[in-house]
Design a protein around this nucleic acid. Structure first.
Lengths: 337, 337
DNA sequence: CTGTTAGCGCATTCAT
DNA sequence: ATGAATGCGCTAACAG
């Protein structure tokens, strides 16, 4: 703050090095047509003066700012953060800086932020939703490419990346079956969420394939531990022979763990429980630790960044791509020994 | 993407409106010396063409980009996210866009990001740490103001904002005493954390003031539920008459809840438990819900933004300011009835 | 190899 | 009230 009022410019460097601004520019940018001695001298002076190239000026000229916008609906959501991290990471390795915009679930604010981003001439935009339900497209009359992450765009001609929840539900269910369970129920969250429906679909498919009858209907309600406890309580009364529970989220699974223990049964010996999301704070802190399906959000963010990068160069892709999820096995399905 | 290759510029607007670029600029920016009819015409044309002022060009001229950098050491941390949200919110209300940079705990990366931010000519920087332990200063030879949030700078001539953990520890302890508890212990996390030490200090002070002897030494170890369970188990053996536990975090508190229940005792009737951080996912999902101390991170982020805003204008402030925390009372200290 | 000339898009003098 | 000229800091043609 107390520094020299004058930020040193390329002109200062050139003057002090006794060359023209153009030559200084070439020297600093490693262009070939400049004498080695000259280059060294310029670089030395630049370093001595603490010269930092003004990206703003450069951007104005090159029509590329080296910035992208990360437009999120809701920062609070557990899922957006890893996506941000992945994207930030993928870009950070390059030369791109990231503008973070939180619309707080408000369409007006989103529009406002979108304009700010366009005015700032970002090279591209990643839209990160909080749910896997399709969301309205930003439209196609934008001067920059857009990639939708987690929440896909309603418009199939946009490029969207979203985790494969159906396969996730299948994997979870198959894992319980592989563990020798046959009397399995599915407790999950809000039926209004595509995530809940998709996972339930995966569950139903694998059960049918295996020729197993689910213990009761799929139980939809809320994404909370409370619901996990309550639903499990009902389940244990209704089907005392139950030996496996596929939960729609780690929180629900954790509630299930508590209810099973309260009933005097043991996890995983009597009943195996599997969660979803692999939320570390929940999954690794419970007793026993929770086997869970990991949607690899950070990976998704990285991939979104790569897609955007490609779209900024060549032809843009389109369509909704389902990204793979994977299983993290812990003590709630396979006991330690 | 398929749009007009040519982004419309002020010159286009001026041409079509039949005025000079200068006049168009004045009209759009609401300067007084322009005829009402002319202004309307220009505005109409601008709207029709979908003109968006190029902030990059404007920045080059005005020497202000309307951007700030949010430099964080670790996005994963639960504490930085609300701070980001608060800052983003406080700025978003104005005209400032936020660059998000995650150094991932690496000093080299931090330096790298710092340079990128300076090259992009941000108007200011907020440095967000993951712990409340003081961190190295970015230095004073920067051309823009810096505010440190959560993790204060080691240099007292920097401006730092950090939550008041000592008072937080005091509040928690006093609350238990107010609830009629007198045989109180303190279980907390890693003793290497300033947060653990500060809260323990607050605990010790209030106990002394109240003339109460803590049940045993403060138990330091890890910020985990496991530790909360284990420590509480020991405590219950050693001091069977215990009636209150001040936990250094919500996770520890939750472990304590489990251990207390396992011992056949009841919370809060037999033993009151209070957590720290007010981490919703933990505090509101436990049985009973957890009373906790909230450090108001979002508030801290907002305040950091305000401070930076001020520093960008007038004289910069300095020193480490402790921000107030507050108590959120739930069922783990006062039973419902 | 180096320097000169021309802008990038815009806001701001200063004439008119 | 309007417009022509100037320049922010830099890169990219050119010409020397």
């Amino acid at each position: 703050m107390v520094t020299n009022a004058h930020v040193v410019t390329l002109r200062d460097v050139a003057n002090l090095a006794g060359v023209s601004v153009a030559t200084a520019s070439k020297a600093l940018n490693g262009r070939s047509d400049v004498a080695a001695v000259t280059r060294d001298r310029v670089k030395e002076v630049a370093a001595r003066l603490g010269f930092t190239p003004n990206e703003v000026a450069r951007s104005l000229l090159t029509k590329r700012t080296g910035t992208v916008g990360l437009l999120t609906g809701d920062l609070e959501g557990r899922f957006v953060l890893p996506i941000l991290m992945g994207a930030e990471d993928a870009f950070g390795a390059g030369q791109v800086s990231v503008f973070l915009c939180d619309a707080r679930g408000d369409a007006i604010r989103e529009q406002y932020h979108l304009h700010a981003l366009l005015n700032r001439r970002v090279d591209g935009i990643i839209v990160v939703g909080r749910q896997t339900d399709p969301r309205p497209s930003l439209g196609h009359d934008l001067p920059v490419p857009v990639v939708y992450a987690y929440a896909p765009s309603e418009d199939p001609s946009d490029l969207s990346l979203t985790p494969d929840n159906v396969t996730g539900g299948e994997m979870a269910t198959r894992h319980l079956i592989d563990c020798g369970r046959t009397r399995i129920a599915h407790i999950t969250g809000d039926p209004a969420y595509a995530a809940a429906q998709d996972r339930a679909l995966g569950f139903a498919r694998v059960m049918a394939e295996a020729g197993l009858a689910p213990r009761g209907e799929v139980m939809f309600s809320q994404w909370s531990e409370q619901w996990g406890r309550d639903a499990t309580g009902v389940l244990l009364d209704q089907f005392p022979d139950i030996d496996g529970i596929v939960a729609g989220s780690d929180q629900i699974a954790r509630g299930a763990l508590d209810a099973v223990r309260d009933s005097g049964r043991t996890v995983p010996d009597d009943i195996a429980v599997i969660g979803y999301d692999n939320w570390e704070a929940i999954a690794t802190q419970s007793r026993p630790e929770l086997t869970s399906v990991d949607a690899q959000m950070e990976q998704l963010g990285r991939e979104a960044a790569r897609c955007l990068f490609r779209a900024m160069g060549d032809e843009p892709e389109s369509g909704t791509r389902l990204l793979p999820v994977h299983l993290v096995i812990r003590g709630s399905t396979i006991a330690h020994r």
